[in-house]
Simulated scan of single mutants.
Amino acid sequence: MKLLEEATLQQLKAELENNITLYQHEQPFMVKRLSIIEYENLSSKLNLTPDSPSKYDAENIQIFHEKFRDIPIELASEESFWSYFSHVEFWEYMQIRWPLKNDTDTSSIRNRYFFGKDRPLFRHGIARLWWYGHLTYNPVLDDPYHYTKVAFKDQDRARLLIETVNISRNRVALFATLDVLLTLDNWTVEGKIEIIMGERENVIRPLMQFINSVGGVMIWDLLSPEEAEEKIMSFIHQLIQDNIIVFKKSQVLI
């Protein structure tokens, strides 16, 4: 596996303000700087659509994670590893998935091409493909990426789930949460729900807080998947009682 040297990585960060136009070039500028004679354009392995950059996120996570599934956690936590990918072999993908908003958009570059103490690696344009796959992958299922697809029905949902510590660090809590959210999705598709009063602010965020608070007094790993789902569903039932989730009058919740 290739990595950027630490000195090169720090120099790139230090020069970012002056180099911003280089991040709009069709070809990766680091190829010349690193005197790379030949490199593989791994972007060609992913689905790319400029008109809707996030459309194939779930599919690309699966493709990427399957290819790099066996890399060690230590390497997957290395900024120099992911920054090499974002600056060289996945340059075309980065240009399409994370285009700069304007000629002064240094924040996007810092968030998507680098990460550090104040920028979570889940925001990195390439690292996120592996980490979302790693955390939602379940090899015991017929479709190991079932939970990846559930999470990425909504980008904000996926981000909140993964960035909530007591969920992302615990697959029992994560999978149970996704099972409950899938139930909500199915209720909506089936026409059972009249309205959800602000899903993000009144359902998803409070649900994350609930799971964090539960994780503060008990260990999710001690619960079976069924017990974990039941505990999370109890929170959903409270939202129903509070009329945050409103069912059609013809529907009876069992």
Rank of each mutant, 00 (worst) to 15 (best):
Q209S: 15
F235W: 13
E194R: 12
I219R: 10
I61L: 00
L223Q: 09
D103A: 12
F64R: 06
R128W: 02
D143L: 04
F68A: 04
E163I: 12
G191T: 14
T148S: 01
D118F: 10
H237Y: 13
S77D: 02
T148I: 00
L129R: 08
K231C: 11
M1C: 07
N202R: 12
S54R: 10
E17A: 15
Q62N: 01
G216D: 13
W82K: 01
P53S: 04
A151N: 05
W98V: 03
F85G: 02
L184H: 12
P53I: 08
R157V: 12
H237F: 13
I219K: 12
W130H: 14
L141W: 03
N18R: 14
L3D: 03
I211N: 03
F85W: 10
R110Q: 13
D179Y: 08
Q24T: 12
Q241M: 14
I167N: 00
L75G: 02
N41C: 06
Q95F: 01
L48V: 10
P120Y: 05
K55W: 06
H87L: 09
L34T: 07
F247C: 09
L12D: 04
I195T: 14
V203W: 00
E199G: 06
R97W: 02
A228P: 03
L3M: 10
Q241P: 05
E66V: 04
L100P: 00
V88R: 00
N41E: 11
K2G: 07
F115Q: 00
S35V: 09
R171K: 15
N186K: 11
P139T: 07
D185N: 14
H25T: 15
R169G: 01
Q10F: 02
D156Q: 14
G216H: 13
D242Y: 09
D103P: 01
E40F: 11
I96H: 01
T136W: 01
T177W: 04
V189S: 06
L129V: 06
L46S: 09
V150D: 00
E5L: 08
Y56V: 03
L121Q: 03
R97F: 04
P225I: 13
I73W: 03
I240L: 07
S52G: 06
V180T: 11
K67M: 05
E89W: 02
N60P: 01
T164S: 04
V172A: 01
I211D: 03
L4Q: 07
S52T: 15
F115I: 02
I204A: 00
A176L: 06
Q10V: 03
I126T: 10
P120L: 07
L160V: 13
K101F: 02
V140P: 01
F210I: 11
D51Y: 10
L141S: 05
